[in-house]
Write a protein that binds this DNA or RNA. Sequence first.
RNA 1: GCGGGCGUAGCUCAGGGGUAGAGCACGGCGCUUACACCGCCGGUGGCGGAGGUUCGAAUCCUCCCGCCCGCACCA
Length: 881
Amino acid sequence: MLDKTYRPAEVEERIYEAWERAGLFRPAGREHARPFCIMMPPPNVTGSLHMGHALTFTIQDTLVRWHRMRGEDVLWQPGTDHAGIATQMVVERKLAAEGRDRRQMGREAFLAEVWKWKEESGGQIVRQLRRLGASPDWRRERFTLDPGLSRAVTEAFVRLYDEGLIYRDKRLVNWDVALQTAVSDLEVQPIEVKGQLWYIRYPVEGEPGRFLVVATTRPETMLGDTGIAVHPEDERYRDLIGRHAILPLVGRRLPIVADPAVDPTFGTGAVKVTPAHDFTDFEIGRRHGLALVSVLDERGRLNDNAPEVFRGLDRFEARRRIVEELERLGLVDKVETHLHTVPHGDRSGTPLEPFLTDQWYVDAKVLAQPAIRAVEQGRTRFVPKQWENTYFDWMHNIQPWCISRQLWWGHRIPAWYGPDGRIFVGRDEAEARERARAHYGEEVPLERDPDVLDTWFSSALWPFSTLGWPERTPELARFYPTDVLVTGFDIIFFWVARMMMMGLHFMGDVPFRDVYIHGLVRDERGQKMSKTKGNVIDPLELIREYGADALRCALLASTSQGRDVRFGPGRVEGFRNFVTKIWNAARFLSLYEVSLDPAFDPSTGRIALNRWIVGETAKTASEVTRALEGYRFDEAARTLYRFVWDTFCDWWVELAKPLLTGEEEAVRRETRATGAWVFAHILHLLHPMAPFVSEELWQRLYGAAGGMLIVRPWPSLSLELVDREAEAELGWLVRTIGAIRAARTELNVPPAARLVLRHHGASPTTRARLARHEEAICRLARLERIEREPAPPSPHSLVVVVDETTFSLPVGEVIDLAKERSRLEKELQRLDAELGRLDAKLADPGFVARAPAEVVELHRERRAETLERRERLVEALRRIA
RNA sequence: GCGGGCGUAGCUCAGGGGUAGAGCACGGCGCUUACACCGCCGGUGGCGGAGGUUCGAAUCCUCCCGCCCGCACCA
């Protein structure tokens, strides 16, 4: 006997272990089965499960379980990402708390600490994924820094270098002065800040007393100015083009150049040009051959290119001092407050500096071309489709990808430098050495590049590196290209685009056929969840409180395509109730010793109720399947919810009760078998979304029958099981009971009052139905008995019209006649309004002529039915009046 | 500035040319041993606004308003 409520905490761990122990997460290895593969986007090792993870992994697990049940050879490849900056920061903070510093420790000792940390704390998210019910092939779990993947990274780097697609270049990068590393454009957070705009007077050379006023938000960079630019068509400055200004505080001669990048309407229309400290200025400088003078060091302090008094000052301190000095010299024309966006590092939160350094770059422009074509040709498809625009946009304007990071934690760049700085790239030091020897003709000392690669470089290889590339493994042959990638739109650029580029380049084919993009999980008010806002919901807490199935279903039901998910615990509670409902339906079935009969053939049922529910099951199965095929998880969840709760529990179970306790053995047997069959299908359909409770109930109710639910075949039912007649009969029954209940409630008939139901004008079909369902109707509508009434209804009755039948329920003197009259009149009004609409439509020659015949016919039928109902109602009203 | 999304019941959201839907919330009633994490009944909107296409529009088109998100950007 099942307990009264389902207690997920007592079930989930046991079930999960049973699956895993039985090896059911692994590809089945059936040769003829179609392979199906999802690459798990590797969460950061430092991470712990948040709602975004919960959503994405629930979706993936649902797909994976569904395909597994469809008999496919499923691989869900799991793993974690070493997350360069994030992890290094975590460990550095920990060390700092112990009073240690990585620079003092040295590279090797520090890395040993990181690895130690990873071994001890890095597995958290993987354990948490199990709590969610995720079923990837854990045996194949990978880590981006493990030997296999590291080898893939090195191989990819060397090949790209040899092909000229990776190169070293001196350019401006976004420099994080706190972390002292380059970061990519994508790691930049533009933050709006209220700053100031200083108007500074630069003396014009050779014209004492004349000044050129430039506006800047960053006065400290002026020490690196090497020019001034104006718009070529700006009349105000036309005479100055080609002449020079003198840089205050420094005395440098600044050529005044004309460049179309200058916006004549902003500030004074004249711009100081600091090519070493601004991306736009860098371009202007290049066009006009201006010098590059970098005045900052890697920690954001003024370097030796600055006048001596300013050297060593922090950039913001320097700004203050420079402005002071300019004011003293009377060179500040004016100061305005100015709202502008300043790039910040998304990890450190500090303002970034455009900084001139040598870095490694991937020639993304070249790699992007096949990746663009692949999506254009539909070889990879985004769902929802509108994300393709975002992808194309970025790919068409793609910039060189800076892949070097001044960190220690990560894949060290496989490049060595000769004594003259010449670069030798190799798979290992020996290869680099060999290449160096070939170049120099002798053995020379080599020094390895100290930097590591951007974490996304290794992630970009994930779809094939995890399958064994560069080896040509059987897994690679079988599972690449993978079927679908599930992820959020926030990493289309970071990751999806780069996997496309690398996959096409190294494997010659797209990494995945479909990219399913889901929304972000927000809080109930639509705010992004963040620790600082304090509005984060912890999925593990929800699992503890409501169970993993409830959380999963709530998430799935809330994700509509192309929309973010607003999420509150209320939703989970609703699905916890749903799970309990299912549990109790199972309890009901086991109470009547309903058990699966392998010989049961759903198409041979004789009882309308059973034929009906079988058909409804078939419809539901096909709808759920279709929903999943279209990545419509909300629809799948909703369909199942309605079927289980409304159709099966509220109607089939209630209507089956008299049959299950009835006299006829054949009826009892058929009803039991049907109930078992339907419920078994419910559990199958439910399993991808709610794996724990479905598996638990499957084993408790049907366990002996055929192994674990997780690997049972997905229902595929013919819609021929739908019986139109049974459908009509049950539809009528539901309407009739509903109408009687509504009338009772409306007239305040006490629920306990058992009434007699009289019918008048019923067709033979209806009379047969009434006879068949008498017991159920009486029970569900609280009736004493049903009898035929030769004449139209007597006064002191409630009147209910269903189709051609007039039902009356004598309620004696207690009935409030006035109230009943007004109820019927209201109903009459509604029918009249409806008739008016239908008549107007049918009278419209345009409608009759142009609308499809079926639609016109439908309207005619509707009109006839409405009219009939109306007549009966009028009749009933006359009797009462 | 470019691109995209959204505006439907009190709230969250489905629907997407042919009688407006769900969950939650709310109100009333609880007879009914699967379930109070429950049952029954009920009200609520005419689908942001204006125009157009159509026999017919919440659904398609145009414009407008409001909110949101990317990308680019003013030194």
